[in-house]
């Protein structure tokens, strides 16, 4: 099956938006506990993106990003991938560790173990928040793996997920969340890529097909 955002009617879009809303609400609460300061959320964006356009939507195949991947298993299976721009990742590290931002672009690939741990935890929080929102809506139970981190070109980062989704010739849900406190604004992209047989299951449970 092949579905794009143009195939969704306004009610279906509202359902997805509501999932994203709950998801990013959970994420904001969890992040504010981790950061020790209030975190607000904006109304998030939800898109169904054809896989061939994924790299373009995320800023072009060669853009360097930080990605955290979580494997999902249970009633449905697939991958959840958090994609952060570099400056957004640095902001998160800065907010958690209270450090000065690394100013040189050459330092891009030299995150410390602590920095990586912060980013992995962020992926964990964002991913877990959205997963519980989806579980709330669909009643489908899933468990998630520990997050795996990768810093590379967005096209390369996405290839594992595209390969998985490519088996059905399909699409990915893209949740775009904006989280901010008084001074900083973080925009994160979260992708849900269901495995071959799980696409229809999710859409069916949500009443789309």
């Amino acid at each position: 099956m092949n579905i794009g955002s143009e195939n969704l009617d306004s009610i279906q879009q509202d359902v997805l938006k509501e999932i994203a809303n709950i998801g990013s609400g959970h994420a904001a609460t969890a992040l504010s506990a981790m950061l020790g300061c209030p975190i607000e959320q904006s109304v998030p964006n939800v898109l169904l993106v054809p896989l061939s356009e994924m790299s373009t939507v995320l800023g072009g195949a060669e853009k360097v990003v930080v990605a955290g991947m979580i494997k999902i298993d249970g009633d449905f299976s697939g991958y959840l991938i958090m994609v952060l721009d570099f400056d957004q990742a640095e902001k998160i590290i800065g907010m958690v560790c209270g450090d000065e931002k690394p100013d040189s672009k050459l330092e891009l690939y030299k995150f410390s173990a602590l920095d990586k741990s912060v980013l992995a935890e962020t992926a964990n929080i964002l991913g877990g928040s959205y997963l519980s929102a989806i579980a709330e809506f669909t009643g489908l139970r899933v468990s998630s793996s520990v997050p795996y981190l990768c810093i590379d070109m967005v096209g390369a980062v996405m290839s594992v997920a595209v390969a998985e989704a490519g088996k059905t010739g399909d699409f990915a849900f893209l949740f775009q969340s904006e989280l901010f406190n008084e001074t900083e604004r973080i925009i994160g992209n979260l992708l849900l890529i269901p495995e071959e047989k799980s696409c229809d299951k999710i859409l069916k449970t949500l009443g789309f097909i």
């Binding site: 896989l51 070109m153 096209g155 996405m158 290839s159 594992v160 595209v162 490519g166």
Partner: peptide, 23 residues
């Protein structure tokens, strides 16, 4: 040459693919 694409051309053209991961 994007994902799942193939192209054939001749000199002096250049063919390129960006961001190969597991592909």
């Amino acid at each position: 040459v994007d994902i799942a694409m193939m192209k054939v051309a001749r000199a002096p053209d250049i063919l390129y693919s960006l961001g190969l991961g597991s592909c």
